[in-house]
Design a protein around this nucleic acid. Structure first.
Lengths: 216, 216, 216, 216
DNA sequence: GATGAATGAGTGTTCATTCAT
DNA sequence: GATGAATGAACACTCATTCAT
């Protein structure tokens, strides 16, 4: 069914994918209307159904496409041996910014997709969702943050970073900011956090020394 | 707008609140239909709009009402000085079961509300949502579990408990089980986990002693 | 579902029934569109579905209603002891003209319904269809035509009468002719056929006498 | 318009005709979709419209073609002087089986076409329909069945044969059985009925003799 | 106050037909 | 000639909201 789609001129493919990503990302599956896609892309309603068969069909297709595209950029850019959380995050965000060059709403779409519960799509999307989640979890799960030995703190920082990244991406994407600029903004935060962490680590070291001294 | 609502006979108020809670809890905001509420409650459609003005109005009202009611029961039942996580959880679940006596779907409704993203409600509900979340976070954030000193393990256990509690609540509420019975079922699990934790702690202590011995 | 419908003012009920009958009769089930009914009757689309739930629901309702109404008029007007085919037909057509006073397209609708094969309706309509068919078959099956003893000829005449009646009804109903006028037109044909039959009988009798003479 | 069609390679002509026949026969005019024909035949959609102009155009063409083809086979095979109903039927069915060798769905298509009421086709098809109907009626109307003098009984047997023939044709064609095999199956039934009729006739004769005796 | 009949814009989906290649 | 991508009007159906009673 979707095979024919790939015979279209690349430019048109991407216009349609971007239209679907934007409408789904902004409205969620249920609220997203095919009429909005028609308006956004300028391609007739009939054609959407010609290529994707149904609304769940459209969603499933762009979801699968997004996961594949995202994994490709991640594997190209992210160094799998890197163990530093902030550096890994920087690389991941760089990959996302590359994705954003062609598909500005793809990252937002994937972020929002996590919350979907509509029965028409959750099952068809389940598997691909897990693949991407596992990939990102694997990359980050054993990563370290210089100066933050304490797991709890580190997790908090990680979560903080995650919130920061997600928030900025959401906000800036809605504002129409280009993905490269979003990346640069995020990188600024990452650098700051890196500096704060290192100094925290040093303070902590001396505290730890004091503690050890007390022990002896 | 809602003031008039409180002039209704208490019984009718509660019937309407319960109807809204049930339909919203089971279907989510967008899928919940005013027709379903009408059928569930046996009160005319016109009246819903007379009192609440709109569908977002209904949702916002029952959300605020639920938060207030929940906080009231929590403050009545939960001992703020208690530091034991499992005991705190027991008290919180007891409070929820009290809520459930009058409003069987209120807890489920609040659990499901976390996932809502519909623009018609997220902003009007935002503040009250934070109040309840903060309250629960405050209660539990520094709590301990006897025998589990390791934060990591403790977090895992806490998360496990959360999953357990949420899962049982969801399942049993759908089955129509009364809230008191749900509480008793949950309490059984809590007791079991408590016993397992204590024994784990003892094993851990001896391991720790061995470690200290090695240090010296 | 249809119960509420009968609480409507009688005039509105009949406007809706007539609208549905006309659109179905003229276009057949599949071709008939709810939009056409909306336009024909001036009642909103939502209301049709409020009362009948679905397009098959509308069809099934008006079919059942038509059968009941038709049987009522038949039982009121047709003399069950009458054995003369042409007189019986006259009475049946009189009954149909009475039906047509309130529901001009009902007879045409029932005539056309015989040909329906759409799977969405044939099963729900099956039983009522049989009731009406059996009633008419019972009335006519043993009837005689004065002057035509020969079964074969009689059947041909009967079939001819049926074709004539159906054809005139179809043609005149489409032209907007009132049912009473249609009845008078049909009655003219019936009288003519009656006269022709009697004279045919007489010729036949003498032929038969000749035959008997030859035998002896 | 259709002239160009006959310049196509014969094989392609027949593939298109068979595709149209099958899709129309199985779904009826309205339900038959040009997409289905395209899929069934493997010839582009554009071409159908190039040769036939419209959907009614396709239907009208294959209808006319079928009638001509059928009449040709009937005139080749059926002996016009034959007066025995069962033998005539056998010959007709033989002709149909010959038709089926090249166009497996043609007979089914013609059988189903009787029920069509769609305004887009009934008028353009009317004349050819009558030609075929009259031909078959003429062939059979005065035919006799050995042993069955009684017109009433004969008609019943004839109708029974018609039901049998139609039913078997429908069933077996859907099952993909070849037309020759269908013919052989039908022939078996015809032989059986022939034998039953003859014996019925003999019993009847003696009864008749008794009656004559009583007369004298 | 209380009702529920009534609305109509909006939804996903289909399909005969056109037309650039 | 031959293709199939592209169209868009038409379809059955939904639902928050209004308003006469």
């Amino acid at each position: 069914m979707n095979d024919k789609f790939f015979d279209l001129p690349r430019v048109k493919q991407d216009r349609m994918i971007n239209g679907a990503l934007e409408v789904f990302a902004k409205n969620g599956y249920k609220h997203a209307s095919t009429d909005d896609m028609v308006k956004a892309v300028g391609v007739s309603k009939g054609l959407w159904f010609h290529y994707f068969g149904s609304k769940p069909g459209i969603y499933t297709f762009v979801y699968g496409y997004s996961v594949k595209y995202m994994l490709l950029e991640l594997s190209t850019i992210v160094d799998e041996n890197e163990r530093d959380f902030l550096e890994l995050t920087r690389q991941i965000e760089l990959a996302k910014s590359r994705v954003g060059r062609n598909y500005p709403y793809m990252v937002l779409f994937l972020n929002e997709a996590v919350k979907e519960t509509d029965e028409n799509i959750i099952f068809t999307v389940e598997e691909e969702k897990k693949v991407l989640e596992d990939k990102l979890t694997d990359m980050l799960k054993n990563s370290e943050i210089k100066g933050i030995e304490d797991k709890n703190r580190r997790e908090k920082v990680k979560r903080m970073v995650t919130y920061m990244v997600t928030g900025i991406t959401r906000e800036k994407t809605y504002e129409g900011v280009e993905s490269d600029a979003i990346y640069r903004e995020i990188r600024g935060y990452l650098d700051l956090i890196g500096q704060m962490s290192v100094s925290l680590g040093k303070a902590h070291d001396s505290e730890f020394e004091n503690m050890l001294e007390g022990l002896m």
